[in-house]
Simulated assay, not measured.
Amino acid sequence: MPGLVASAVGILVVARTGVPVAVVVGAAVFGAGFGITQSATITLMYSRVPASGYGTVSALWNVAYDAGMGIGAVGFGTVAGLTGYPWAFVLTALLMLTALVPAWWDQTAACKQRATTRGDRAVTEEEQG
């Protein structure tokens, strides 16, 4: 999540296209966030398979990465043609932030699961008296 937020913030700063320093700083922040997210996603994928599956994970990750970049570039170009670059950057940042919703949802579900598990253990301990 930190990489995603940094990337979105960087893109929002880049939206200030008339301010050269904002574009450079925003691009640097975006790049840092993007790098964090790249590393985190492939590491997460590797953690979910045995070492024998690393080749498959690498191939799938690279296909998804390249396809996402291509589809994103076409989509961004289409939006920029309709709205101009500043608004296209703002809309891109907002779209990126929608990825926080499932992350928040997963976090909430995990917290509820832990609370339920703790509650079940407490009842069991009380029953055992």
Score class of each variant (00 low, 15 high):
residue 13 V to S: 00
residue 13 V to D: 02
residue 14 V to M: 13
residue 15 A to T: 04
residue 16 R to L: 15
residue 20 P to Y: 00
residue 21 V to R: 10
residue 21 V to F: 00
residue 23 V to P: 05
residue 23 V to G: 10
residue 24 V to C: 00
residue 24 V to I: 15
residue 26 G to Y: 01
residue 26 G to A: 12
residue 28 A to M: 15
residue 31 G to M: 11
residue 31 G to P: 01
residue 32 A to C: 10
residue 34 F to E: 13
residue 37 T to E: 13
residue 39 S to T: 14
residue 40 A to N: 04
residue 41 T to P: 02
residue 41 T to I: 01
residue 41 T to V: 08
residue 42 I to K: 05
residue 42 I to S: 07
residue 46 Y to S: 06
residue 47 S to M: 09
residue 47 S to Y: 08
residue 47 S to R: 14
residue 52 S to Q: 12
residue 52 S to G: 09
residue 52 S to H: 04
residue 53 G to C: 09
residue 54 Y to K: 08
residue 57 V to N: 04
residue 58 S to D: 09
residue 58 S to Q: 09
residue 58 S to T: 15
residue 59 A to V: 12
residue 61 W to S: 12
residue 62 N to E: 14
residue 62 N to T: 14
residue 63 V to R: 09
residue 65 Y to V: 10
residue 67 A to L: 15
residue 67 A to D: 00
residue 69 M to H: 06
residue 69 M to C: 10
residue 72 G to Y: 08
residue 72 G to R: 04
residue 73 A to E: 01
residue 74 V to R: 01
residue 74 V to E: 06
residue 74 V to D: 02
residue 75 G to D: 03
residue 76 F to R: 00
residue 76 F to C: 07
residue 77 G to Y: 03
residue 77 G to T: 01
residue 79 V to G: 00
residue 80 A to W: 10
residue 82 L to R: 08
residue 82 L to I: 09
residue 83 T to E: 11
residue 83 T to M: 12
residue 84 G to K: 07
residue 84 G to P: 00
residue 85 Y to N: 05
residue 85 Y to R: 02
residue 86 P to K: 03
residue 89 F to W: 03
residue 91 L to G: 04
residue 91 L to T: 06
residue 93 A to R: 02
residue 93 A to Y: 00
residue 93 A to P: 07
residue 96 M to E: 03
residue 98 T to M: 00
residue 100 L to G: 00
residue 103 A to I: 15
residue 105 W to D: 11
residue 108 T to N: 06
